[in-house]
């Protein structure tokens, strides 16, 4: 499939990744991603029709446990590492 990594693609992916990049970083990232993709593109040409994708390497049955109440973190503990706390909760900026 056609693949061109230009600055717009890099900016789009950065937005999806929630990463602010400077213009210089956009250019560096464009060059580096292109280099890596040039290498990984080798698998594009393999004929893998009928091959099942690996979702997990070890065969697993559903793992269940008894649903029993157990001690948990107190609100104070849960908030201990929070950068900003308000009204007993995590403080979050306005949506935008």
């Amino acid at each position: 499939m056609p693949r061109v990594i230009d600055a717009d693609v890099v900016r789009h992916v950065a937005r999806l990744s929630r990463l602010a990049l400077t213009d210089d970083e956009v250019e560096t990232m464009r060059a580096e991603l292109s280099g890596i993709l040039d290498h990984v593109d080798q698998i594009q040409s393999l004929d893998l029709a009928g091959v099942a994708p690996t979702t997990h390497v070890i065969h697993l049955e559903n793992v269940l446990r008894t649903d029993e109440p157990r001690p948990s973190l107190s609100p104070e503990e849960a908030l201990r590492e929070a950068p900003r706390v308000a009204a007993g909760g995590f403080s979050v900026g306005r949506m935008g």
Binding site: M1, I43, L48
Partner: peptide, 12 residues
């Protein structure tokens, strides 16, 4: 083209 294909190569 990328993730799906890579999961198949992983099987191989």
């Amino acid at each position: 083209a990328y993730y799906g294909q890579a999961q198949r190569v992983r099987t191989r």
